[in-house]
């Protein structure tokens, strides 16, 4: 896991950014072979400097038009529970660790992350269990996430609307 990409989407999730840059978390990441940490921090108040850690290369930014390239280059994606981030990462076939913001209650976006966790497509933790999870996580237990089939929709609609 040379490159780890952390993304919080359009929200802010300072607790995640704070936790992932603590010495313990950095040690755990290094233990996994991580050399480069890329952080997308969104509207958060913390934007780590690139020289803030001498053990890992850190590259932090707020937003990009598309994070597809960052996902493609990453060996592990650590994400908030947002549906868009989860689907984009799984769609790219990358291992995904979702960190749930337990301070946000009644967030319907959690529904999807929760289900994907139950169907063992991703790993799941909270900011307080992040370091522990980084040490013990095992992605070999996950099953691949197959892409959705819009063709089934098109075939159904063609039949229903009488298109030959």
């Amino acid at each position: 896991m040379k490159t780890v990409f952390v993304t919080v989407g359009t929200t802010s999730f300072d607790e995640l950014i704070e936790r992932i840059t603590t010495p313990e978390a950095v040690q755990a990441l290094k233990g996994r072979g991580c050399q480069q940490l890329v952080l997308q921090v969104g509207r958060g108040s913390i934007l780590p400097e690139s020289d803030s850690c001498y053990e890992l290369g850190i590259n932090a930014f707020r937003f990009k038009d598309s994070i597809a390239e960052d996902i493609k280059c990453a060996d592990l994606v650590i994400s908030h529970a947002g549906a868009g981030s989860c689907l984009e990462t799984l769609g790219a076939g990358k291992p995904l660790l979702v960190v749930v913001n337990d301070k946000l209650m009644d967030n319907h976006q959690l529904e999807l992350a929760n289900r994907l966790y139950k169907d063992s497509h991703l790993l799941y933790c909270t900011p307080s269990t992040l370091v522990e999870t980084l040490k013990t996580m095992d992605f070999s237990v996950l099953s691949p996430f197959l892409p959705g089939q819009p063709k089934h929709f098109a075939d159904f609609l063609d039949r229903a609307l009488g298109i030959q």
Partner: peptide, 23 residues
């Protein structure tokens, strides 16, 4: 035509159409 993408919703809303994930 009302499509849902999870079987748990199909159970709750029987009139809906469930073809698995379609996006």
């Amino acid at each position: 035509y009302f499509f849902v993408q999870w079987s748990s919703l199909k159970d709750k809303y029987p009139k809906s159409i469930y073809l698995g994930r379609i996006v």
